[in-house]
Design a binder for these strands. Structure first.
Length: 307
RNA sequence: GGCGGCGUGGCCGAGUGGCUCAGGCAAGGGUCUGCAAAACCCUCUACCCCGGUUCAAUUCCGGGCGCCGCCU
C-alpha cells in the first residue's frame, strides 16, 4: 500500500471532527497529515484554531502547522507551494498524504493550482484602497474599462476582488479574466479522494457550542494575552479571526465571558455555514457523517484499491 | 383611582394620509483563482384589537387591551 501519487482530502466545517478522523486514517493507511486550515499555519495560535495537540501530532508526521508567525504574510499561493512540497515529500517516503482542513480556497489551490500571476503588491493595494475611499465607485468603473468580463462578475462593492483584478491587470498588462480563462483551474496534482465530513446541522451546532465554551473557559484568553505580550495585537488581521477577536474584547473589558461565548458560537456557526456552502459546490466530494468512521475507511480503501 | 407617554417584522429602531412603507442586528441562501476564520451579494417576517373619519389609515379621531413613568 504505497500509493504513487494519490492523496486524501478530509474537508468539512469547523468542529466537524476532521482532526480525529484524519488521525485514525493516517494510522490505518500509513499516512502523514497536511494542514489545510488558513489559521493553523500560524505559530502561537493553538487554542483558538483548535490545532491538533503536540501529543496528537507526535502520532504521525504533521505538516504545514506552525509555518509562519502571526505578523508574516501567508496566502493561497504560499499554501499551494508549501503543500506541494509536503505532498512530494510524503510520496517520496511511500506514504499517503492526508490533507485536513476547512479552507476551501487553499484546498482548491493545492489540487488545481492558481493562475500564474503576481502576488499581492501591498503598496499598489494601498493606493487603490485609498482611491476608492476618495472616489467611491472608482474601482468598479476602472475595472469595467480594463477587464469587462471580471467587472460583470463582480459586485461594484466587492473591493477585495476589484483590487485584485486591477492589481493583476496593472502589473501584467493583461486582464485577470484572460489569466483565469487560460488557467481555469486546469492543473491537477496527483489523484485525490475528497471527503467532506458533516455531522448534520444539529450535531454540528452542539459541537460548535461546546467548543466555543471550551475555548473561552479554557486557554483562549491566556493565549491571546501571551500573543499580545509578544507584540501580536488586534491590528493584525489574523488576530481578528474568529475566537481571537472575541477573546480580545474580553481582555479589553468590553464583553464579559458569557457574552463572548455567545458571540463566538454565533460567528463560528456562521463560518461553518459558509464553509458548507463552499463544499456543496465541490461536485466530486463525497459527504460522510464522521460518526460513520467505517464508511470513511471503506471509501479510502476502495480509492486505494482502484488501479 | 388620576395624569402623561408608549404599543412597528425574531430583536433593536426610524417614519409616513396613498408612491414595493428607513436602517441595524439575528436568521436563511449564495459568490469566491495570491488577505479566504476574509470580503461581497441576495432573501424573509410589520405597523396591538375594535369602530369611525377619508376616495385611501400603520399614520387622524374614539373606545378597548397591554406596558412604562409620575401622582393620590
Amino acid at each position: 500500500m504505497s500509493p504513487d501519487d494519490r492523496w486524501i482530502v478530509v474537508a468539512g466545517p469547523t468542529a466537524a471532527g476532521k482532526t480525529e478522523v484524519a488521525l485514525r486514517l493516517s494510522e490505518r493507511f500509513g499516512g502523514e497529515i497536511v494542514n489545510a486550515d488558513s489559521r493553523q499555519v500560524y505559530r502561537h495560535m493553538d487554542v483558538g484554531t483548535a490545532k491538533p495537540t503536540l501529543a496528537e501530532r507526535s502520532i504521525v508526521p504533521h505538516h504545514l502547522f506552525d509555518v509562519v508567525d502571526p505578523d508574516e504574510h501567508f496566502d493561497a499561493a504560499c499554501y499551494r507551494d508549501h503543500g506541494r512540497t509536503a505532498l512530494r515529500g510524503i510520496w517520496s517516503r511511500g506514504r499517503l498524504p492526508i490533507v485536513v482542513g476547512g479552507t476551501g480556497l487553499y484546498l482548491r489551490a493545492l489540487s488545481r493550482g492558481l493562475f500564474r500571476g503576481p502576488g499581492a503588491v501591498a503598496a499598489l493595494r494601498r493606493v487603490l484602497e485609498q482611491l476608492e475611499e476618495d472616489h467611491p465607485g472608482m474601482l468598479a468603473r476602472w475595472c469595467r474599462r480594463v477587464d469587462p468580463p471580471i467587472a460583470a462578475r463582480l459586485h461594484p462593492h466587492d473591493r477585495v476582488r476589484l483590487i485584485r483584478a486591477l492589481e493583476v491587470a496593472i502589473t501584467t498588462g493583461e486582464p485577470l479574466s484572460r489569466h483565469q480563462s487560460r488557467h481555469s483551474f486546469g492543473e491537477r496534482l496527483g489523484t485525490v479522494l475528497e471527503i467532506v465530513l458533516h455531522p448534520g446541522d444539529e450535531v454540528l451546532a452542539r459541537k460548535i457550542d461546546a467548543r466555543s465554551r471550551g475555548m473561552l473557559e479554557g486557554g483562549l484568553l491566556d493565549e491571546v494575552r501571551s500573543l499580545r505580550a509578544r507584540g501580536y495585537g488586534p491590528e493584525l488581521r489574523v488576530l481578528r479571526s474568529i475566537g481571537y477577536r472575541e477573546a480580545g474584547r474580553v481582555l479589553d473589558g468590553e464583553w464579559d465571558r458569557d457574552q463572548a461565548i455567545t458571540e463566538l458560537t454565533r460567528s463560528t456557526w456562521r463560518f461553518a455555514r459558509r464553509q458548507l456552502a463552499w463544499f456543496r459546490g465541490e461536485r466530486e466530494a463525497i459527504w460522510i457523517d464522521p460518526v460513520d468512521s467505517d464508511r470513511v475507511a471503506r471509501e479510502v480503501e476502495a480509492f486505494l484499491a482502484r488501479g
